[in-house]
Design a protein around this nucleic acid. Structure first.
Lengths: 197, 197
DNA sequence: CAGCGACGGTACGGTTGCGTCCCGACGTGT
DNA sequence: ACACGTCGGGACGCAACCGTACCGTCGCTG
């Protein structure tokens, strides 16, 4: 994993892995037939761990807890380096895409489903919330911040972020957004209101 | 750019570029001294274009417009392939990081600053909004959706997303979020106000 | 037309990585 | 002690790529 983080999947070579591990290529080839298999295995092993998300009692608390976990996970330099790399590679390599799908995203959908399911049961969200959109709103900002922009995020900012995302989720699960006809390209709108329900 | 999208930065070779372009390596080496210079130049050329974001009159409209532009940009298969790749590579290569910083992120901060500045001027957001957090909330979900999860996003979903993000921004710019004891976000749908103060 | 400078292409040595072959080391059973 | 199977390591042939040296071509200019 260190080698993968250091040079990326594209430049990863069996020789370098063996070198870094202090063994010879043969030892590596005896266990994995190709670098794809090797990477798929360590990714599955590392990212496939499912963990339960504790129920804190309300949506904001759950979000804050999830953000804390994500911050810790993406705070690891190895993860912050490897995950975006593999996600980019997944667009090229269906095998990697499938493995990541099975390891990361289904896990996220799982947790997102739990989180949203609880919120719906509590009445915090509408019953017909789109899980996909909800996952986008939940993991998008934090992923962008930590993995893409690579800016640090203080733990004391998490409550604010959780509150903001909770508000977004509440709005996103409303049945429809009625106003805004097709005048968005025509310039100034007299700004009737910002919150017509 | 096609070669870059096809094999990624790590595996990009001058020979392959020359082959795909139908010229010889020498012709390439005469113009760029290394593959890094080549990539930096095409990235600057492609992503450095600044464009003004039209003022639609309210925050949600501005967001929707921005989302429409981003959807188009990230909808290009080349961009959707190259941008995550380079962002992952930027974590390894300071030169790429710096160029991307100058091209993509400062642009985003610029646009985000415009958008938020207008919203503050309109009274839709509080005056001490953190631009960084706001940018996270704005671009995070859409980037995740289009570039990471690579799921399609229908244009008719943009208004809903814009409304959700606007709600998140309104909450995020509140001065402070007193956590645990109160549950005011739990059941209430906070559509009543459009301005913080 | 001759000379000149810019340009593009081919060919070359050197490096790196791949995948495989063969050999020695080690532990085990007879 | 000896045969045997397993394991790891060094070495090999092969292919891709790097960066450069050399050479032919083209267009301009005197």
């Amino acid at each position: 994993m260190q080698e993968l983080a250091a040079v990326g999947y594209g430049r990863l070579s069996i020789e370098a892995v063996a070198r870094r591990a202090g063994v010879s290529k043969t030892a590596v080839y005896r266990r994995w037939r190709s670098k794809l298999e090797l990477v798929l295995e360590i990714v599955s092993a590392a990212a496939g761990q499912r963990f339960p998300l504790p129920d804190t009692g309300d949506l904001r608390g759950d979000l804050e807890m999830l953000f804390l976990i994500m911050t810790r996970a993406l705070g690891h330099p190895l993860a912050a380096q490897i995950i975006p790399d593999l996600l980019a590679e997944a667009a090229r390599n269906p095998q990697i895409a499938q493995t990541l799908q099975g390891a990361l995203r289904s896990n996220q959908r799982d947790i997102g489903g739990q989180l949203i399911g609880r919120a719906i049961a509590r009445g915090e969200l509408g019953p017909d919330t789109d899980v996909d959109v909800a996952v986008d709103l939940i993991v998008g900002p934090l992923y962008w911040r930590l993995a893409v922009a690579r800016a640090p995020l203080a733990v004391e900012d998490l409550p604010r972020l959780a509150a903001a995302v909770a508000a977004a989720l509440e709005v996103a699960c409303l049945p429809s957004v009625p106003d805004e006809p097709d005048v968005r390209l025509s310039g100034v709108v007299p700004m009737a209101d910002s919150g017509g329900s």
